[in-house]
Design a protein around this nucleic acid. Structure first.
Ligand SMILES: [Mn+2]
Ligand SMILES: [Mn+2]
Ligand SMILES: [Zn+2]
Ligand SMILES: [Zn+2]
Lengths: 132, 132
DNA sequence: AATTTTATCTTGACATTGTCTAATATAATA
DNA sequence: TATTATATTAGACAATGTCAAGATAAAATT
C-alpha cells in the first residue's frame, strides 16, 4: 500500500495531519475498525483531532471508493480497507471480522430471482475461528 | 400464525396488554421492523407502553427463539418474524428488506474454509426490486 | 507582505439507538 | 388481606452519527 500522503494527493483530497492520521490507520488495518477505533488511533498521532473530522474523512474516503463500509455487527458500522469484492466471517465470541476471498465461495441460483435486480451481494458467515 | 395470546402462553411469558401489542405486530410483520417501528405500532394499541418494555419484550422473544434479529442496515437492528433459515435482499433505494427462501440459493465452497467453524451463514443481496 | 477568499477543523448541540435503574403498578400467593 | 414476585414506566445514561457556527489555517490576489 502506498503512503497516506500520496493516496490523498492522488484523490485530490487535501492532505492535512488529521486526514493523514485517519488514512494511515484505516487503510492499513485489516481489522474492520469502527469509527471510534479510528478516532482512538488518530488521536495518538494527532491528539486534537475531533470526532467530526474523523467521520468527515471516513465518509470522504468511502465516497471516493477508497474505503468500504459494512453493516455486519450491531451498534456501529465498520470500515473495510479491502475494497475488492469479498465475503465476511464473523467470530461470534470475539466479534472479530475476517475476509473471505471472493473466489472461495460461489453463490448459485441468483439468476432465478426474477423479482430482483442485484447490484451486489456477499456471504456473511458466523462461527468460531479455529486456533491454528 | 396463532394469536399473540396463545403464543405468549405457550412460551410461558406472562401475557400483558403491552406484550400482546408488541407480539401482534412483530410476529405478523414481514417488513423486518426496527424496535422503533414496533414501538410506534404498539402505542396505537397501548398508548402508554414504554420504550423499555418494547425492548424487553423483543429481547425476550429473541431469547425464546420466537423472533429473529438481523444487522443488515445501519442505524438499527431489525427484527425478523421469519425464523426459518433464509437469505435477505435489501432494496438500495427504499431500504426495504425481502426474504429469499433458503433453497433458492446455494453457497458452495464452505468446506474449504479450514480455519473457520461455521455456525450459520446467509447471503445478503442488495439492489433494486423490480416492479411487477 | 498584506489582504481577501477558500478550505478545513473544532466544539458543542442535537437526534437516534439501546440499556439500565428506581419507583410504581400489577399479579400471584399465602 | 397481607406478602411476595413480576412487569411497567419514566428518566438517566452511554454510544453512534450528523450538523452548524465559529475559529484556524491555507491559498490566492492584490
Ligand atoms: Mn472495534
Ligand atoms: Mn423502518
Ligand atoms: Zn472485509
Ligand atoms: Zn428475514
Amino acid at each position: 500500500m502506498k503512503d497516506a500522503l500520496s493516496i490523498l494527493r492522488r484523490c485530490k483530497i487535501q492532505p492535512t495531519p488529521q486526514r493523514i492520521a485517519v488514512v494511515e490507520y484505516v487503510l492499513k488495518s485489516k481489522a474492520h475498525p469502527s469509527a471510534d477505533d479510528v478516532l482512538s488511533y488518530a488521536r495518538k498521532k494527532c491528539p486534537t483531532v475531533s470526532r467530526a473530522t474523523v467521520y468527515n474523512t471516513l465518509n470522504l474516503l468511502v465516497e471516493k471508493g477508497l474505503l468500504g463500509m459494512q453493516t455486519i455487527k450491531e451498534g456501529a458500522v465498520v470500515f473495510d480497507s479491502n475494497i475488492e469484492k469479498h465475503h465476511h466471517f464473523v467470530d461470534s465470541e470475539t466479534g472479530d471480522i475476517y475476509d473471505i476471498p471472493w473466489d472461495q465461495l460461489e453463490v448459485k441460483g441468483k439468476d432465478k430471482l426474477k423479482d430482483f435486480e442485484i447490484f451486489e451481494f456477499q456471504v456473511i458467515l458466523r462461527g468460531r475461528r479455529k486456533k491454528k
